[in-house]
Design a protein around this nucleic acid. Structure first.
Lengths: 253, 253
DNA sequence: AAGTGGTCTAGACCACATC
DNA sequence: ATGTGGTCTAGACCACTTA
């Protein structure tokens, strides 16, 4: 009765690579996630305890704990002291990643398209200057783009960037996402603060999104920071609500 | 030149409690966050390295690492191998926590109010049954509430719960948030999956939110799971966009 | 009493960035 | 060559849950 319904498919973890660059905890957590998402470990199942797992995998307990914790943080597992570790029931959705809309659409196997509506150097307003951490009135890059998927308009994107990105070309922006362009220049976005809301379509947004004038749009405002904590991008975007939404998984600490 | 602008206010960490129930890493990370949010450690500052910190605090390096990692995960710090740890520049906003709207409003020092519009036992539709993991057509609790802050309507909330919560009273719901009522019964929400979007106000929502008929509303759909991974609540809510928005901090892994 | 996850230690070696 | 964070080990003790 003690060991009822304890799942731990050892065979999934048989060939861990101890020499390559991929951390052991990452190899374990990846395969564990895959096993849960695929249903190989069913919802509600209890996992074996940490000590037993670490012995069977030939890993230390901290390493196994870290692997499990990664999966807990993604909302697929739940841990209780004195009880054990269980798989969350119900269908799982993928996490909101720190990627641009362009990559979101790409990974969803659609054909993204971009029209650059504006691409200028403008003086920073008070708001833009504060968000980017530059002097008010100093030069910043202003972008306005229409984003489509399979020919259907999805979003109108307005971005402000520091002046060092003045040499980004319109052509680059029409064939790649902004974050891809930045990454190709060695800039990695590490942290972003987002605010999601809704309002009526304003000005030419209705036309650009091909929706009724004054119809509802989903809005997102974002400030993104690079490796060193410097603000790299400030944007406020609006999305066609029938074409896009935001998904999140929250885990209580 | 080596030790330029390295911040680490030792005095903030002088009196750590090694006997109480609060983990050491938590004490350190809390005070570190407070120091950053208050500006005591300014944006862009470099932190001292982990070994040095652990020696000065009399803690092991893993404990210090864990404390720092907590702050990194909240988007306040950025770490780079071979470089060090730096404070993210720009104003910081607080994290979206796994709390109910009621508690959000409470903590913002406003006076929340609730009107229960419906409180019934109904047969589960196919969608509700799937989300809650119960049989289609079986009894579930249906709630519809209007939420106000300082007398102004903010949201219309529709929730479905498993039948074991049939004894929740309308009175409880009018003076507390749903999550507070659940917690008082020993149910702790641990994981939630949310989807945020926008649409036009439908039916009586315009009246209930005191906005124009057909005006935009912000929507949120959520499934919440307890300690053991069981689905406890399914809801779809709509919010007055001028009264509410969702803020998130994303950190790349 | 037995079993579980939660915390903490004191090291070790490595990969990466800078000088 | 040096300094940084990233990973990993092999234990220890504790708090909590269940029986």
């Amino acid at each position: 009765m003690a060991g009822d319904e304890v799942y731990w498919p050892d065979e999934l973890f048989a060939d861990l690579d101890r020499t390559g660059p991929v951390p052991l905890y990452f190899q374990v957590s990846s395969r564990l996630q895959e096993a849960i998402r695929s249903g190989a470990i069913p919802g509600g199942a209890r996992l074996d305890n940490e000590i037993s797992i670490s012995q069977r995998l030939g890993l230390s307990r901290p390493t196994v704990r870290r692997a499990i914790q990664e999966v807990v943080d993604k909302g697929l597992l739940v841990r209780r002291r004195g009880i054990g570790t269980q798989v969350v029931q119900g269908q799982v959705t993928r996490q909101v990643e720190l990627t641009s809309l362009y990559e979101d659409l790409q990974s969803a196997h659609h054909e993204p398209g971009t029209t650059v509506l504006a691409h200028d150097t403008v003086p920073a307003t008070a708001v833009v200057a504060e968000k980017l951490g530059v002097a008010k009135g100093s030069d910043v890059i202003y972008l306005r783009r229409q984003r489509r998927t399979d020919g259907v308009p999805v979003a109108v994107l307005e971005n402000y960037l520091p002046p060092e990105f003045a040499d980004i070309t319109t052509g680059q922006l029409e064939s790649h996402g902004l974050y891809q362009v930045l990454r190709a220049r060695g800039v990695t976005i590490r942290v972003a603060q987002q605010k999601i809301g809704a309002r009526r379509a304003q000005g030419d947004e209705g036309e650009l999104l091909d929706i009724e004038k004054g119809g509802p749009v989903l809005t997102m405002e974002r400030v993104a920071y690079d490796n060193s904590g410097r603000a790299i991008e400030y944007g406020h975007h609006c999305y066609r609500p029938d074409m896009y939404s935001f998904e999140t998984t929250l885990v209580a600490k």
